[in-house]
Design a protein around this nucleic acid. Structure first.
Lengths: 333, 333
DNA sequence: GTCCCGACTGTAAACGTTTCCAGTCGCAGC
DNA sequence: GCTGCGACTGGAAACGTTTACAGTCGGGAC
């Protein structure tokens, strides 16, 4: 079923059929009706490859994500997909790029298949990668280290959120606060660590190297780190984890070590994933509107596509809020 | 940068350049070298639209998923994406189709953009939907009600898993086992409920309508259901939830009701999402290899594409296993 | 020397659209 | 009645590939 079949069957030219399907140019009412009837009868669908070939548009957005854990991935997509769909765009997803080479290959592969790209790459210097792209390809950088104003970018307020959380813990009287960090290569993780140190220093609170443990954002690594922290003496009275997954692992480790949360040790996480409030005890966390992150990135990208990338680039930071629950003494304690 | 530019620059015909890029037909060694050099210098990438137009292949797989909760979505994609990538395929993801109309629209939109489709639709009669598709379009049905052998399909052993779990609980001496169900329209949920009833009946155990509560697979609904169950008298001594998210909600509700798990009430879930083992107490569950589900579906689909859908269709069921942890008395008690 | 074959290369026709340009037609204004 | 204009329609070029077909050329078999 090509446009030609429809045209022949309806007794018109292909141009007219095309005009009907694209609402471009005038078409007589009864001609339009006839074409629509014929087209539905024949189950005609325009061939998107042919269409892209000539219009130079694919109506597809590329989404490049790292190998995210748990609900984060899910939530980002939940923000992106409906937004894209509403504007008639599809999304081409590519996941799990651990090193630079993989990410570059993925970008190359997407080239020409998409009208724009959302790239999330907290581990890798995305700006340099993007430089390899044809400069008429719109890109939105998500959670990337980005300098200058050449690209649209969207970040979480990692520093502000973590700083506020440490302040909160200090305010509750905790004097020995441990920290479970993420990979040092990861930008988000690094910022949260930086804020932890800064908050302690600014408050004149004690800092010890042994209170900083490194994980990799998985529950398992949080479990290990907390198990180690529980052995320290004097034992820290609070553990702040760079993300919720590790905090959840930490809760599990503390319970097994026979320590009560929050009485013996307070715990706080970062991200406020949906499941956090259902932990035992409910997890205090730094709330991030993850799906909103995806949604805003998509909006920005759609705008860039619309403007053929000739628009004013923007750099935005998504605010975070503290969500105090029982794992750090919380509202009930 | 079109193939013509490369051809001109290298002093050959477009056919030869095409042959080099597709490894089709013989090309002289030094000619090949020259073409590759020129192409990289010019940063030439074949236009995928033009290529699809003539080859009738897109090298893209469509993935249609319902609005999945929590980690399930993430895990399915984790199985699909790398498998597709390894075979040189991209994936076009579309999410959140709650009713039949939306799903149909999504399918139509993907038509012509993909070489095959993975459709997961436990709520909707997918087989009927698929009938609307051109019959040369390969489809793999995931977790769908499917009769006959006209389609490739892959299912979880919902009945077997749930049956085994109820048996296990009975074996531990529980005589009043409550069940938190999912939507009755959802095929997975319905099967698990059916198994719960069958297992009780086969064992000659007591069944009461008030022990069956319905949820919607979210933590919040599990929370509500468990809160109600906790009020019953006599109180059930075990709660089996149709998925882990609801079980986690249930744990939270029981804790708030002042009940101990597993001493007062045992809890079991279904899916064994990665986070289950980190609950307090660690959650007993029916393990499902979610990412393997995605991976196998993809393999099947790739095979179908290879065979132009002229292959023998297969219907497979993925086995489940019991994972006994402390929330139901578990290995430690 | 002729013939044939295989290796290599080029020409040009498709693929299914969109869109520029030109054409037809009816009608209002003069 | 002629002109001009607007609404509608059609013809055909273009988009960037792949691929069937045909052509060239060198060398081995006879």
């Amino acid at each position: 079923m090509t446009i030609r079949d429809v045209a022949r069957e309806a007794g018109v030219s292909v141009a007219t059929v095309s005009r009907v399907f694209n609402d471009s140019g005038p078409v007589g009412d009864e001609t339009r009706q006839r074409i629509i009837t014929v087209a539905t009868r024949l189950r005609y669908t325009p061939d998107s490859a042919a269409r892209s070939l000539i219009t130079r548009r694919t109506n597809t957005l590329g989404v490049l994500l790292p190998d995210l854990y748990g609900e984060f991935f899910s939530e980002v997509i939940r923000g992106i997909d409906p937004t894209a769909q509403r504007s008639g765009y599809h999304i081409l997803v590519s996941r799990s790029h651990n090193d630079r080479r993989e990410l570059e290959a993925a970008m190359r592969a997407m080239r020409g298949r998409v009208d724009g790209l959302v790239v999330m790459s907290p581990d890798i210097d995305a700006e340099a990668l993007v430089a390899n792209l044809p400069d008429d390809c719109p890109v939105v950088l998500l959670n990337c280290v980005v300098e200058g104003t050449d690209f649209d970018s969207l970040n979480i307020d990692n520093f502000g959120g973590a700083y506020a959380m440490v302040q909160h813990l200090l305010g509750r009287g905790h004097e020995r606060i441990a920290f479970i960090a993420g990979h040092e290569r990861n930008h988000d993780a690094a910022e949260r660590l930086r804020a932890y140190r800064a908050a302690l220093k600014d408050a004149g609170a004690e800092w010890r190297e042994e209170w900083e443990r490194s994980g990799d954002f998985t529950e398992a690594s949080g479990y290990r780190a907390a198990a180690e922290i529980a052995e320290l003496s004097p034992r820290p009275t609070a553990i702040f984890s760079a993300n919720d997954s590790m905090a959840i692992g930490a809760l599990s480790a503390l319970r097994e070590a026979g320590l009560r949360v929050p009485e013996d040790v307070a715990v706080a996480g970062f991200d406020d994933i949906p499941i956090a409030r259902y932990m035992s005890p409910p997890l205090t966390s730094v709330h991030v509107a993850i799906s909103e992150l995806g949604e805003r990135a998509t909006r920005t990208l759609l705008h860039a596509v619309e403007e053929k990338n000739q628009h004013q680039k923007t750099q935005a930071t998504l605010p975070t809020t503290l969500v105090i629950r029982q794992s750090c003494g919380g509202d009930h304690g």
